[in-house]
């Protein structure tokens, strides 16, 4: 080993040093990739965790909506049907009594008739609110038209609707998502926007279905709405995601809201 220090062996020394350096370089490369890989895996885990959190929130929101919907239906059934049927039952009870005059019988009969027709009307309305039969029978274009008519009948808004959408362009479940989005937007406009005019447009083009919604209300900060736990906006976002459609939403305080959904045809969700 002492030989290595003499000048004759300079060449060997240099080669040994070079080998050492190459070895270090190789180890450095390996370590670099090893730590990079660790970092990447960590980032991916973090991403997956966020995704799971998001899913959980979504699930929670869904459950809350479901419960709210249930209690609303329960309330509707109670107010509009059960209480009225009580009246019917009471009147029918009077009818069964023996010493009842014809006049009274007619009066009770009339009352029963009135109440039952209200109950019928109410149950029709409840069913309609849950799932508009127009949508399944006549398609999205007609269902949206009906919705617009209903909203403009309230007299608060001027609703303009234009459509060019052949029936059954999209599968019925996808049409339902689009319908719910417009329904939600209208609800928001009615509740918060103080708008005077609403525009709805539904068009089928070569390979895309475009749905546009606009109001001239007081608008809001989009970022706040998207991040809030409120179900409305995130619901719209989720439906667009389910549809694999492009969603663009622009709004600012006092500038109304403009929502556009572009659903490419042939990419079924």
């Amino acid at each position: 080993m002492e030989d290595l220090l003499t000048s004759d062996n300079q060449v060997i020394n240099i080669i040994l040093i070079a080998i050492g350096l190459l070895l270090l370089m190789a180890i450095a490369i390996v370590l670099f990739f090893y730590f990079s890989r660790k970092k990447i895996i960590k980032a991916e885990l973090e991403k997956a965790r966020l995704e799971i959190d998001h899913q959980k929130e979504l699930l929670q929101a869904t459950i809350i909506t479901q419960e709210e919907e249930r209690s609303r239906i329960a309330q509707d059934l109670h107010d509009a049907i059960s209480s009225k049927l009580n009246v019917v039952s009471l009147n029918a009870n009077f009818l069964t009594e023996k010493d009842i005059t014809t006049d009274d019988a007619n009066k009770f009969g009339e009352s029963i008739l009135n109440v039952t027709s209200t109950v019928l009307e109410n149950s029709r309305r409840i069913a309609h609110d849950l799932l508009p039969p127009t949508l399944s029978k006549f398609g999205l274009e007609a269902a949206l038209e009906e919705l617009c008519d209903e909203v403009s009948e309230s007299g608060k808004f001027e609703v303009r609707y234009e459509a060019n959408y052949p029936m059954e362009t999209l599968p019925s479940d996808e049409e339902l998502h689009l319908f719910r989005v417009i329904q939600e937007l209208m609800n928001n406009s009615i509740k918060y926007s103080e708008a005077s005019q609403i525009d709805v447009a539904l068009h089928k083009e070569d390979s895309v279905v475009r749905l546009a919604y606009m109001d001239n209300g007081k608008g809001f900060d989009i970022n706040d709405a998207m991040n809030s736990k409120g179900l409305g906006m995130s619901g719209i976002k989720n439906r667009a995601a389910i549809l694999k459609a492009e969603l663009s939403m622009t709004s600012a305080p006092n500038e109304g809201i403009e929502v556009k959904i572009e659903k490419p045809l042939g990419s079924s969700a």
Partner: peptide
């Protein structure tokens, strides 16, 4: 990687 880089010079 480690072996071939360093043995090349040898």
């Amino acid at each position: 990687l480690v072996y071939l880089i360093s043995s090349t010079l040898i």
